[in-house]
């Protein structure tokens, strides 16, 4: 088996995550889909690391994880304060830019 298949899997997961972002309205679920996309990328990085025979891909994946952790912290805090003020976690409710 060729590690390329991991790349296919990563592409599939990424697309599923992106589609989830587009169709879900609950901000938390949208956020989870973003995490899924990030994880798909990480898988691709790890697979590339193996394909190229060095550890740089893993390092990038590691940094991605850290950034994702920071992002989750801030994002969830935003969702919580949004819920407090609007009593809703729907992304469609925050549509003040609408004419």
């Amino acid at each position: 088996m060729n590690p390329v298949y991991y790349l296919y899997l990563a592409a599939l997961l990424f697309t599923i995550g992106a589609t989830g972002v587009l169709i879900r309205r609950n901000a938390i679920v949208v956020f989870m889909c973003v995490e899924l996309m990030l994880n798909a990328c990480n898988l691709a990085f790890v697979a590339f690391s193996r394909l190229h025979g060095n550890l740089d891909g893993q390092i990038i994946a590691f940094f991605t994880m850290v950034v994702a952790a920071a992002e989750v912290v801030v994002g969830l805090a935003i969702i919580v304060s949004l819920f407090r003020s609007r009593h809703s976690a729907s992304v469609d409710d925050a549509s003040l830019m609408k004419l």
Binding site: N42, Q58, A61
Partner: peptide, 14 residues
């Protein structure tokens, strides 16, 4: 999968 790809540290961290 990370573990299978030789990324042992990342697998555990994941």
């Amino acid at each position: 999968f990370y573990l299978a790809n030789g990324a042992y540290f990342l697998g555990i961290v994941q």
